[in-house]
């Protein structure tokens, strides 16, 4: 091979340098070179695995991952990895808590943390909550079931008082009346459940520790079925128990929001809201439950349903 003459070599080197400098000038490329450490509460289970997969598919950073279910990892190794990052992505409440306890001085974005408000506060922390705004769900109820007038909610004031206030506020705007019953312990459920179901067209099952036990959930679904009152729920697992409708956060959308927040943090942009709601919803409609329900479905709204279960 003929060697380059000196002027050609110099010219090529100069051009290469210009190209490198030009590319470094582009903010997108700077973002690409940043190190993101994903710390996952347990990437062996789908709930935490799917957000990680969706993130990895969309992002363009240099990514390292830590799976907290990996028993071979020790605290020292985890802390070292976190300290090498430019930004941390914590998936799940356990991951969030561990990063907070380790006092690593790096910005963090989190997702998939149920009831994030109960987590310890941490500076330089941003996130996408796991729960859709109550108003977004009420919009869908109104859209899919135009005849729905009254909906029942059982909740614990300690956990969901503020959430309920927001829900009641929006419910008036969409023409649905919320009838709520507060309980502190699951053993208070039985006397109020039938009475509540007698007053409403459907029951809205929310994520709440007072009604989270298996027995309580089964009691709710059995009584609702007996009284022919459909149940609207927040997780796909309830379809198997007979929920008519499930509305949850759309995971690919959450990943895009996480990436957008990371981008803003790394570019030192002003961030209006540190923790945002998920922007996308995932809607599952159970046709078997619909056939047993007195509620009329607005069939023209079927294009807003992600999954129809027969």
């Amino acid at each position: 091979m003929k060697p380059y003459s000196l002027p050609t070599c110099v010219l090529r080197s100069f051009l290469s340098l210009v190209l490198i400098l030009t590319s470094l000038w582009t903010s997108e490329v700077i973002a690409d070179n940043r190190n993101v450490v994903i710390i996952n509460s347990n990437s062996n289970i789908p709930k935490y695995q799917r957000p990680q997969q969706a993130f990895e598919k969309e992002q363009s950073y240099h990514v390292n991952t830590i799976n907290l279910a990996d028993k071979q990892l020790n605290t020292k190794q985890i802390k070292y990895s976190l300290q090498q990052s430019d930004i941390i992505y914590a998936i799940g409440a356990n991951a969030y808590q561990l990063v907070t306890e380790m006092t690593v001085d790096k910005p963090m974005v989190f997702s998939t943390a149920i009831n994030w408000k109960r987590l310890p506060e941490r500076a330089n922390t941003y996130g996408v909550s796991n729960e859709l705004p109550a108003g977004r769900q009420l919009m869908m109820y109104r859209y899919l079931f135009p005849d729905l007038k009254k909906i029942g909610i059982i909740y614990s004031p300690q956990m969901n008082k503020e959430w309920l206030e927001e829900a009641i506020d929006t419910s008036k705007d969409v023409g649905i009346e919320i009838i709520s019953e507060a309980i502190e312990e699951s053993d208070e459920l039985e006397p109020i459940l039938e009475s509540l179901l007698g007053k409403v067209d459907a029951l809205w099952l929310i994520s709440d520790s007072a009604i989270a036990s298996k027995n309580t959930i089964l009691k709710i679904f059995n009584t609702s079925k007996k009284m022919q009152k459909p149940v609207f729920a927040y997780h796909e697992v309830f379809v198997g128990l007979g929920a008519l409708l499930v509305i949850s956060a759309d995971i690919p959308t959450i990943s895009q929001q996480v990436i957008s927040l990371m981008d803003d943090v790394l570019k030192n942009k002003t961030i209006d809201k540190a923790v945002v709601f998920p922007a996308g919803s995932h809607v599952i409609l159970n046709m078997k439950a619909l056939k047993q329900s007195p509620l009329r479905l607005n069939e023209t709204a079927l294009d807003s349903v992600n999954k129809i279960v027969e």
Partner: peptide, 15 residues
């Protein structure tokens, strides 16, 4: 986002 309704409601909630 999955639907137009998601897009429109996200304005209200600051997303």
């Amino acid at each position: 986002v999955p639907t137009d309704m998601d897009a429109l409601s996200s304005i209200k909630y600051g997303m």
